[in-house]
Design a protein around this nucleic acid. Structure first.
Length: 512
DNA sequence: GTCTTTTTCTCTC
DNA sequence: ATCTGACCGATTCGG
DNA sequence: CCGAATCGGTCAGATGAGAGAAAAAGAC
C-alpha cells in the first residue's frame, strides 16, 4: 500500500469533526490494506510508528530534504526505514539516524514529509487515535467492537488486534490470554471525593472494595514455570530491574500466573519513599544489585488475571480477589477493605493518608477486568492541596490553543524580600473563556518577551490545585508542584496576598 | 585522548 | 499524570 | 407519539514534573 493512500485518509479524517465519519474513512483504508500491512497502517493512522523508540525527536527537525514530486513510497518501505533507524546506536549514530531520515524524506512528497514528521513526534492531530481506530477496525472487518477491544487488550495493541480481526470473528474468539504476552492494564477514573467515587463505581449501591493507592509504578507480572517477566503500564519489559519482585512471583504456589500490582520503595518505618525514589530505582538498569541493597522495592498485588490455565479476566472482581488471597500472601497484597458504608470508606481513606500513602481506589466487586479504557468500575480518590500563586509569565499555546497565552509560570512569595519563587508551570484547568481572558490580562502586564513566552509584572494571583510538592533541581526554591492545575483567578487578591514559599516547603517531604 | 558537562530522548507519574 | 471541549447514543421533556 | 433538550460515557489534545541512558560537546 502506498504511503500516499494513508496520508490521503489521514487528511480526510482530519477534515471532519464527526467521529462516525472519521471511523468510516479509517475503515475504508483498512479494508484496502494488504494483509501483511494492516498492522502498520493501523499504527500510522492512529498516530504511531510501529517502532517503540527511534532516537529521533524534536531536535531532528533540523533535518530537511527536498520533496519528491510524486508519491511512490510504500508503507512497508517506511516501516523498514524506521526499523533500520531504531537499530542504530553508538558513537556517530545520531548523524547516521539523521542521514537515514533524510534519505527517507527525499522519497516523500511534501504532504508525506509532513505526515511522517507528525508520526515521529507523536503529534498526528487528525482527531482520531487509538479509540476511534478500534471502532474502525471493528467496522472494517465486521467484528463487534467489544470483541476487538478484548483482543486489543489481550495482545497489547490495536494493530495486533486488527491482524486477527481481518481473519473474522472465529479467529477473534479464539484469542485468549497468553502468559508472557502483556495485557493492556485496566485504568481507573477519577473522583473529587469518596462520596462521588462510591456513586460512580457502585451506582446502585453495589458492593465495593476500597484499595490503598500506593505511589509507585504499575507492575504486571507473568510467570510461566521458572520464567518470570515484569511489565510496566505501557507494557515495557522491566524484569531485569526488579529482581526482588521476580523473587516474590517465583515464590508463589502456582506454575502459571498473571498478576497486576505495584512496585514501591518503602522506608524502614514502612512509610512510602517519595515517588522520585521509586521512579529512579525502577528506571535504573545498571548496578541493580547495588541499588537493590540501598532502595529495595516492595511488591504488592491487587488483581490476578490468570492462574494455571484459567483466564480470570471475565470473572467478577469478587472472584478474582478470592483467587488472589489464596495465591498471594498478605504481605504481598495491597491493603484493602470491603466497605458497607461511606463512613467505613472514609476512615480507611483517612488512615491511608495518615500513613503517607497517595489515596484510594474504589472498585466495583461485580466488574470484570476491562482493560484499556478508563471506565467507572475503578475510581481513584486523592487528597487535593491548593495555593494562591503569582503568575510570572505565560507561553503561547499550540494547536487549538494557538494565538492564546496558555502555559502559566507560577510562583510563591518570599516573605523576606517580597520576591517571587517559581514553582512550576501549568496549562490545565483553563476553559476557553479563561484562556481568552488571561491572554488579554497578561498582555496588558507584559514587560518583555521571547519567541515562546510573555513575561509580565507579577500582579495576577491564581488559585492552583496540586497533588504534592516534590524535590526540584530546576526551580530556585528546590521544590516543584506535582500535577498543578488552575482552579480560578483570585481577582480579590494582590501579589502581596499570595502564599509564601515557606508554606510550600512545609508540604515538602524531603527524600531520606 | 580522556574526563566532565550538556543535550536529547524515553520512560514513570 | 489532569483537565476541557466535543461527539454520540440513550433517556427525558415539551407539546 | 415525535422531535428537542439533556445526560453520561469516551475520546482527543494540550502540556506538567523528574530521572536515567546514551551520545555529543566542551575543557584541558
Amino acid at each position: 500500500m502506498l504511503l500516499s493512500e494513508v496520508v490521503e485518509t489521514s487528511t480526510a479524517v482530519a477534515a471532519t469533526r464527526s467521529r462516525l465519519a472519521k471511523r468510516a474513512a479509517l475503515a475504508r483504508a483498512l479494508r484496502s490494506a494488504p494483509p501483511d500491512e494492516v498492522a502498520t497502517v493501523v499504527s500510522y493512522l492512529s498516530g504511531s510508528l510501529r517502532q517503540r523508540r527511534t532516537g529521533i525527536g524534536w531536535a531532528a527537525h533540523e533535518v530537511t530534504a527536498p520533496a519528491a514530486a510524486t508519491g511512490t513510497l510504500e508503507v512497508a518501505d517506511v516501516d523498514a526505514a524506521f526499523e533500520r533507524i531504531s537499530a542504530l546506536s553508538g558513537a556517530g549514530s545520531r548523524d547516521a539516524r539523521r542521514d537515514a531520515l533524510a534519505a527517507l524524506l527525499r522519497q516523500a512528497t511534501a504532504v508525506e514529509q509532513d505526515f511522517l514528521w507528525r508520526l515521529v513526534t507523536e503529534e498526528l492531530r487528525q482527531g482520531a487515535l487509538d479509540g476511534v481506530m478500534l471502532d474502525a477496525v471493528a467496522e472494517a472487518f465486521d467484528v463487534p467492537v467489544p470483541a476487538v477491544r478484548r483482543v486489543a487488550m489481550l495482545l497489547g495493541s490495536t494493530a495486533a488486534a486488527a491482524e486477527v480481526a481481518r481473519e473474522g470473528q472465529p479467529a477473534v474468539d479464539a484469542v485468549g490470554l497468553v502468559v508472557g504476552v502483556p495485557v493492556r492494564p485496566m485504568l481507573a477514573g477519577t473522583a473529587p471525593h469518596l462520596t462521588a467515587a462510591l456513586a460512580k463505581a457502585a451506582p446502585g449501591g453495589d458492593d465495593v472494595v476500597v484499595d490503598r493507592k500506593l505511589d509507585g509504578i504499575r507492575i504486571q507480572a507473568h510467570r510461566d514455570g521458572d520464567v518470570v517477566q515484569l511489565f510496566t503500564r505501557s507494557l515495557d519489559d522491566i524484569t531485569d530491574r526488579l529482581p526482588e519482585a521476580v523473587e516474590v512471583v517465583a515464590s508463589l504456589p502456582a506454575d502459571r500466573v498473571v498478576l497486576d500490582g505495584e512496585a514501591i520503595v518503602l522506608r524502614p518505618d514502612g512509610r512510602p519513599a517519595p515517588f522520585q525514589v521509586t521512579a529512579a530505582r525502577t528506571a535504573s538498569r545498571v548496578d541493580v544489585a547495588e541499588l537493590r541493597s540501598r532502595a529495595p522495592v516492595a511488591t504488592v498485588f491487587f488483581d490476578v488475571l490468570h492462574v494455571d490455565g484459567r483466564d480470570l479476566l471475565e470473572q467478577p472482581l469478587r472472584d478474582r480477589l478470592h483467587e488472589l488471597s489464596a495465591l498471594v500472601p498478605e504481605a504481598h497484597r495491597v491493603p484493602a477493605v470491603r466497605v458497607s458504608s461511606t463512613q467505613d470508606a472514609q476512615s480507611f481513606f483517612d488512615a491511608t493518608i495518615a500513613s503517607g500513602h497517595e489515596g484510594v481506589i474504589v472498585k466495583a466487586l461485580s466488574s470484570p477486568y476491562d482493560a484499556g479504557r478508563r471506565g467507572s468500575a475503578w475510581v481513584k480518590v486523592k487528597p487535593r492541596h491548593t495555593l494562591d500563586l503569582v503568575v510570572l509569565a505565560a507561553e503561547w499555546g499550540h494547536g487549538r490553543r494557538s494565538g492564546r497565552l496558555s502555559n502559566l509560570h507560577l510562583a510563591a512569595r518570599d516573605a523576606a524580600d517580597g520576591s517571587c519563587v517559581m514553582l512550576g508551570k501549568t496549562f490545565k484547568g483553563l476553559t476557553d473563556a479563561l484562556l481568552t481572558w488571561q491572554t488579554e490580562q497578561l498582555l496588558a502586564l507584559e514587560i518583555r518577551r521571547t519567541r515562546s513566552t510573555v513575561f509580565v509584572r507579577p500582579e495576577l494571583v491564581v488559585e492552583i490545585a496540586f497533588d504534592g510538592v516534590q524535590t526540584s533541581s530546576r526551580y530556585p526554591g528546590g521544590v516543584a508542584l506535582r500535577f498543578a492545575r488552575v482552579l480560578r483567578y483570585r481577582d480579590d487578591k494582590t501579589a502581596d496576598d499570595a502564599d509564601n514559599i515557606e508554606t510550600v516547603l512545609a508540604l515538602h517531604d524531603a527524600p531520606s
